[in-house]
Design a protein around this nucleic acid. Structure first.
Lengths: 123, 123
DNA sequence: AGACATTCAATGCGTGCGCATGTACGTTCT
DNA sequence: AGAACGTACATGCGCACGCATTGAATGTCT
């Protein structure tokens, strides 16, 4: 392969790293905890947040997901009893998402998996 | 946000970079040339390859795609007349994929788009 | 040569994604 | 206050993906 624009080199490097790690992470989280990478990220932000709750809109900003994808990630988590939706009094368009006890517990376990996978596959 | 494990910091950094660039790139390629990022990558490998042809199996190794996704990327490109499939004499399980003139021409245009997007969004 | 394992590619299937739209609420301007 | 515009979330839709399976060709071992 002839030498490429350094821009392309670094893009390929980035793509390669991301793909490898994301794939491993997704598989591990799915296999051990039944979570998508996105699902885990949602849980993670919630646990980090004040009172384990956050508005969907804030999740959208933090995560690298579209609004619809975020909404559906919350759907999935809710269906598993890991989070709850709640009315947002101050702005009734908004929806709070709150991690349940079960959600926090699962997050703690999944965090171990995440760290293990990152430790192994992130150079 | 409290400080995190440096492993998590770099993972988030990687995820963030990738998502931003990939999103922009995908949109630009789709809008201007009707190509997926993956489609473009396939074309790119073909153009790089000896005689603009490569076996699907080799594409799978190079690209960060499953075998089925690669096969379907080739389907799409073939449907647009950008590549052709051809028998592989030496191993009749295999399939060669060959970029057509149209494919090479489109690749050249798309490359400009890629470089522009990378230049703008890749730090 | 014959039986068994392996490899390459295509395809059925289920899933998560983004885009576009719908609906309800909020904000602004006159 | 009322109209027009903007924002938050849910949902219909089509698409690309990965996994599992299939089918054909190859390779291996006895």
């Amino acid at each position: 392969m002839k030498t490429k624009d350094p821009l392309i080199e670094s893009w390929r490097e980035l793509l390669s790293q991301y793909s490898r790690v994301a794939h491993e992470l997704d598989r591990a989280l799915q296999a051990r905890h039944g979570l998508t990478m996105s699902d885990y990220e949602v849980l993670d932000r919630l646990v980090d947040a004040e009172g384990c709750k956050s508005r969907i809109h804030d999740l959208v900003v933090d995560l690298h997901l579209s609004q619809s994808a975020s909404s559906r990630a919350v759907d999935r988590l809710e269906k598993c009893g890991l989070v709850q939706r709640a009315m947002c009094e101050s702005d009734r368009r908004g929806v709070f998402v709150i991690a349940t006890d079960k959600g926090r517990a699962l997050h703690e376990q999944a965090r171990v998996t995440q760290l293990a996978v990152l430790g192994e596959h992130l150079v």
